[in-house]
């Protein structure tokens, strides 16, 4: 095989790369186009971007070689944290609610991460599943939090500014867009840092990473907390935009859907989860409408096809074309 060798005679450029440019463009377009969008489209994009944020965390874990069947734990915690502020204290500020989502998810992950950082493969999947099912089990029996029904919530202000009927929707949308942008940009930068690069190294060979003087457990712990924080914020955003939270958010099938989107998207780029989540949400809303009993069938078949024929996920279609 005669592969052409790309000669890198200069240090890699430090400036803005293609991903950053796409991210910035998406940020501007979405913020500007937002007010023009019909209500249903805005809602769908809202949920897609929020789910994309959750799946972005999955991407980070999968880059590290870990598949979590329990991200629903943090998704649900984030949603309940935002909801509880409104429900119990009457706080209805988007910023404050999201901060609570982030803080609760990060705090719980910091503790559980100490344990989970020791686990790999199916044991990581199982233990993360057990933790999310514990939360599910607790919530369905907690009448103060509405048991199986959950409870409603809504946001009225953004950073203290009262929004009024007309801008409420857009403010939430804009917040979601900005949060998704920051998350994607942050993770993108993180992945090209020393610590971030260790993710792929750990996936390939933990022993060597330790023999280079880096702590595998510490990196996994940090990545786990980041992933959980993203899931928490995503949960908070979804809770606010749907206006309702319930224990189903912690049930393992919710985590399973995140896994699905992550596999569908691929881990090639931080843009992939958002693309995957948007496709997922659009297909889901049409499928619910026209053929509610074949939705999971579509998911399952798609998943098998991706695993067998497109192991890099949808994103690898783009990179393949670029290389050709």
């Amino acid at each position: 095989m005669n592969q052409t060798v790309s000669i890198q005679k200069r240090p890699p450029a430090q400036g803005t790369d293609r991903t950053t440019i796409v991210l910035l463009a998406a940020l501007v377009v979405l913020l500007v186009a937002g007010p023009l969008l019909p209500r249903w489209a805005m809602f769908m994009l809202n949920v897609s971007l929020s789910w994309g944020t959750v799946v972005l965390g999955m991407l980070l874990l999968m880059r590290t070689g870990l598949v979590s069947f329990g991200q629903g734990l943090y998704y649900c915690l984030g949603a309940y944290a935002a909801g509880a502020l409104h429900h119990f204290y009457g706080i209805a500020d988007i910023m404050v609610m999201l901060l609570a989502s982030l803080a609760l998810a990060a705090a719980v992950a910091a503790v559980l991460g100490l344990l989970l950082a020791k686990y790999r493969s199916i044991f990581f999947a199982m233990l993360s599943l057990a933790f999310s099912m514990i939360l599910f089990g607790l919530l369905v029996k907690t009448s103060a939090l509405g048991s199986t029904d959950g409870f409603g919530l809504s946001a009225k202000t953004l950073a203290g500014i009262t929004l009024g009927e007309r801008w409420e929707r857009y403010a939430l949308f804009a917040t979601t867009v900005v949060v998704a942008f920051c998350a994607a940009f942050g993770v993108h930068r993180y992945l090209s840092s020393h610590q971030g690069r260790l993710a792929g190294a750990i996936r390939d060979n933990e022993l060597r990473v330790e023999y280079m003087g880096a702590s595998v457990r510490r990196v996994i712990h940090v990545n786990y907390v980041i992933a959980a924080s993203l899931a928490g914020i995503g949960g908070g955003l979804v809770g606010i935009s749907i206006g309702h939270v319930d224990p189903e958010m912690a049930f393992w099938t919710t985590s399973g859907e995140f896994v699905f989107i992550a596999i569908l998207s691929g881990t090639g780029s931080v843009l992939a989860p958002f693309l995957g989540a948007t496709i997922f949400e659009s297909v889901r809303s049409f499928a619910y409408e026209y053929s509610p009993n074949t939705w999971q069938l579509i998911l399952g078949v798609t998943m098998l096809l991706v695993i067998m024929f497109l192991p890099g996920g949808l994103w690898s279609v783009f990179t393949r074309r670029k290389a050709a």
């Binding site: 890198q8 020393h194 280079m212 880096a214």
Partner: peptide, 28 residues
């Protein structure tokens, strides 16, 4: 080795870790 990474990336990880433990800058 890190089997899925390129030769350059393998070395990058090695050099990066060494730089980090020497409390150098966090990025390339």
């Amino acid at each position: 080795l890190f089997g899925n990474l390129s030769v350059y990336e393998n070395l990058q990880v090695g050099v990066g870790v060494a730089a980090r433990s020497a409390r150098a800058k966090a990025s390339a």
